[in-house]
Simulated assay, not measured.
Amino acid sequence: MGTYYSVKVARPPAGLSAETLRLQVESALDQVIGEISTYEPTSELSRLNRDSSTDWIPISPNLHAVIAEGQRIAALSDGAFDITIGPLVNLWGFGPEARPDELPTQEAIQAARARVGWRKLELRASPPAVRKARGDLYIDLSALGEGVGADRVATELETQGVGDYMVAVAGTIRAKGRNAKDQPWAIAIEEPLPDQRSVHRLVPVSDRAISTSGDYRNFFVKDGKRYSHEIDPGTGAPIERHLGSATVVGERAMVVDGLATAFMVLGEQRGPALATDQGLAAYFIVREGETLRGFGSPAFEDYLTRSRQP
C-alpha cells in the first residue's frame, strides 16, 4: 500500500504471543492489499482497472463495500472526493509509478480529467459488480485504503480476544479500550508543518477511529512551488488551500479516512460547513500567515466533552 502500520496491544489475552499476533495482522493486511492496492499488479482492483469492458464486471463483496463507501462520500461532498481520480494522481506522480521530472501540461491534465468522474462508475449490490461508462476508467481507493486496513486489523484483533488496542495505518487509527496506563488512547494531531513533527493537540480515542489528512507530508517542490498529493477533481491539479489538515473522528476507520480527504479538497470554508451540516466530528487547522488556527466542528467539541466524562 506504499505506507506503514503500527499495532499496540495492552493486556493481551493469555497465550497470545506477539509473533502470532504479528503474523495474523500481516495476513489481514495482505488480504486488503490483494483486494484494493494499486501498487500490487495482481490485486483485484488492479485487474479491474485493466479491464476495458463497459459491461457489468463482477467484483468481490469486500471490494464492493469499499467502492460503495467511496461513492457515498463522493455524493456527500459533491464530487470533491472521487475514487476515479487515479489518472490525475498518477499524472502528478503520486501513484505507484515514478514521478516525472516535469509538471504535466494543461493538455495532459485535460486528457486525464476526461477519464475522471464518480458518476461514470455504476455499482450493483447483488450480485456485486461495477460498470464503467468508459473502458479506461481507473479507480484509486488510496484515500480509503488506510482505513480499510485499520478496520480489518481491528476485526482480527477482536477475533483473537484483544480488547485494548491501537491500530495505525499511516494517518488513520482505530482504537479500542484503554492503553497500558489504563487511560484512553491519546492520539496526537500534528502541526501541519512539512519540516518538523510537533504536536498541535492530543485527542482521547477509545472505541473510535480517527484520521488526519494534510498537505504537509506527501508533496514535492518544483520551481519553488509546493504541490500536494491532494488532487482537486474540479481543476485536475493539487489543491491550493489555507487548510493545512483535517481530522475526523467516527466509528469506522474507512469512513473517517475518506471524509478527512474530502474535507481537505473542500477547503477551509466548505469543509467545516459540511461537517457542521452533517453532524460530523471534525477538527481543522488553517494557516493564517505565519500562524496556525485550529477549530472543531460542534460534533467534535461534543465528542471531547463526552470523552472527558468519567
Score class of each variant (00 low, 15 high):
2 G>R: 12
15 G>P: 15
16 L>N: 06
17 S>L: 10
20 T>I: 08
29 L>Y: 14
31 Q>A: 07
31 Q>S: 05
33 I>W: 00
53 S>W: 04
55 D>H: 12
57 I>P: 09
58 P>I: 03
60 S>A: 04
65 A>T: 07
72 R>L: 07
79 G>M: 02
81 F>H: 12
83 I>E: 10
84 T>Y: 11
88 L>V: 01
89 V>I: 15
91 L>W: 07
92 W>K: 01
96 P>S: 08
110 Q>W: 03
115 R>C: 04
115 R>P: 06
127 P>Q: 07
127 P>N: 03
128 P>Y: 10
137 L>R: 06
148 V>S: 05
162 V>C: 15
162 V>L: 11
164 D>T: 00
166 M>H: 11
168 A>M: 10
168 A>V: 02
177 G>T: 11
180 A>G: 04
186 A>Y: 04
194 P>R: 06
206 S>M: 01
210 I>F: 11
211 S>M: 03
213 S>Q: 03
216 Y>S: 01
217 R>V: 14
225 K>C: 14
225 K>I: 14
228 S>W: 00
229 H>P: 12
229 H>R: 05
235 T>H: 00
238 P>C: 05
239 I>V: 12
242 H>S: 13
244 G>D: 06
244 G>Y: 01
249 V>L: 15
255 V>G: 10
264 M>Q: 02
267 G>V: 02
267 G>M: 05
284 F>K: 02
285 I>P: 03
300 F>N: 08
302 D>E: 15
306 R>T: 11
307 S>D: 02
